[in-house]
C-alpha cells in the first residue's frame, strides 16, 4: 500500500465506519434473516431460498412494485419537467421578482414529510377539507382525492409539492455556472431563446438531470411516509401492500414476519439498484 493510498483511506475511514454500522451491518443482517423463518408456533428454522421463492410469487408484493413503478413513470417526469421549466424561467432573467419565486418554490422542501402529508390530507378532505369547501361553494362534485383510484395521484401531488423546488434549485444552480459568453456568442449569431435553451442550456443540464432523476427514482421506490400518514384518513385506499417499502414495514411490525420482511427489503433493494443502473447506463449511452 502506498503512502498516498494509506492517507486516502484515513480520510475515508470514519465515513466508512459509520457506513458499515448503519448500512452494511443491517443489510447483511437482513440477508441473514431472509434465509430463516420464525413462526409463532414452532420457532426458527433455516429455509434457504424459500422466502425468495415466496416473494417472487407474492401477488401483493408485485402489486406494490407495480404501483410504485407506475408512480415512477408518471410522477418523476412530471416533477422534473416542472422543475426544469421553472429553472429555465428563473434563469431567463425575464421574471419580475425572480429571487422571491426561487425561494418560495423551494420552501416546501423544509417542511417535514409528515407535516406535509398531514396538511395535504386536510386539504384533500372531500367533506370538511378544502375540496369539500370547493364542492360546497361552487355546487360541484369533485372526485374524492383519497378514493382508491385517485390516491396514488394524490400522493404524486404531495411528493411533487415537496421536491419540485429542491430539484429546481439543483438545475437552476447548474444553469448559473454556464459560461455566459456562450449566450453572447449565440445572440450574435442571431439565435433565439429556444435555440439557446436547446443548444446550450439543456446540454449543460444533462449531468444534474441524471442525478435528480436517480434520486427521484430511488425516492419513488422507497415511498413510505405518505402512505403511512394517509392510512388513517384513507384506510380503504391505502392497502397494507400499497408500496413495497410500506409492505415490508407492515410485515415486520403488524405481522411479526421479520424474515419475510427482510426478504422483501432485499429484493426491493436489488430492483432499485437495477432500475437505477439501467437509467444511468441509458443516459450515458445517449450522451456518448
Amino acid at each position: 500500500m502506498t503512502r498516498r493510498t494509506w492517507i486516502g483511506w484515513q480520510f475515508v475511514a470514519p465515513f466508512l465506519a459509520v457506513f458499515a454500522l448503519v448500512f452494511l451491518a443491517p443489510i447483511v443482517y437482513s440477508v441473514y434473516l431472509s434465509l430463516y423463518r420464525t413462526r409463532l408456533i414452532g420457532g426458527t428454522s433455516f429455509v434457504g431460498a424459500e422466502n425468495y421463492t415466496k416473494a417472487l410469487h407474492d401477488p401483493q408484493f408485485w402489486s406494490a412494485v407495480g404501483r410504485v413503478s407506475l408512480f415512477m413513470v408518471v410522477q418523476v417526469p412530471i416533477m422534473l419537467l416542472l422543475a426544469l421549466l421553472i429553472a429555465l424561467a428563473i434563469d431567463s432573467g425575464r421574471l419580475y421578482g425572480a429571487a422571491f419565486f426561487r425561494i418560495s418554490i423551494f420552501l416546501p422542501y423544509a417542511v417535514p414529510a409528515v407535516v406535509a402529508t398531514l396538511m395535504w390530507g386536510f386539504i384533500y378532505g372531500d367533506r370538511f377539507g378544502l375540496v369539500g369547501n370547493i364542492n360546497d361553494y361552487f355546487g360541484v362534485h369533485l372526485p374524492d382525492p383519497l378514493a382508491p383510484d385517485l390516491v396514488l395521484a394524490s400522493i404524486g401531488n404531495i411528493v411533487t409539492w415537496e421536491f419540485v423546488g429542491y430539484n429546481m434549485l439543483i438545475l437552476y444552480s447548474a444553469l448559473r455556472v454556464v459560461d455566459t459568453s456562450l449566450y453572447e456568442a449565440a445572440a450574435i449569431d442571431g439565435a433565439g431563446q429556444w435555440r439557446i435553451i436547446r443548444a446550450i442550456k439543456l446540454p449543460a443540464l444533462r449531468g444534474p438531470l441524471l442525478i435528480t432523476t436517480m434520486f427521484s427514482i430511488i425516492g419513488s421506490f422507497q415511498m413510505f411516509t405518505e402512505p403511512v400518514v394517509l392510512k388513517t384518513i384513507a384506510p380503504n385506499a391505502i392497502l397494507t401492500y400499497f408500496a413495497p417499502n410500506y409492505y415490508a414495514w407492515q410485515l415486520s411490525f403488524g405481522g411479526q414476519q421479520y424474515n419475510y420482511s427482510a426478504t422483501v427489503a432485499v429484493v426491493m433493494g436489488l430492483i432499485t439498484m437495477l432500475v437505477a443502473y439501467l437509467v444511468q447506463a441509458r443516459a450515458v449511452r445517449k450522451a456518448g
Binding site: 385506499a237 392497502l239 405481522g255
Partner: peptide, 22 residues
C-alpha cells in the same frame, strides 16, 4: 385470535372494498 393484531391490521385490505363499492 392469537394473532388478532395482524388480522386487524389487514382488515381494510379485504373488508374495506365493501365500503368503496367493490
Amino acid at each position: 385470535l392469537p394473532f388478532q393484531v395482524y388480522a386487524n391490521s389487514v382488515f381494510n385490505d379485504s373488508v374495506g372494498k365493501a365500503y368503496t363499492g367493490g
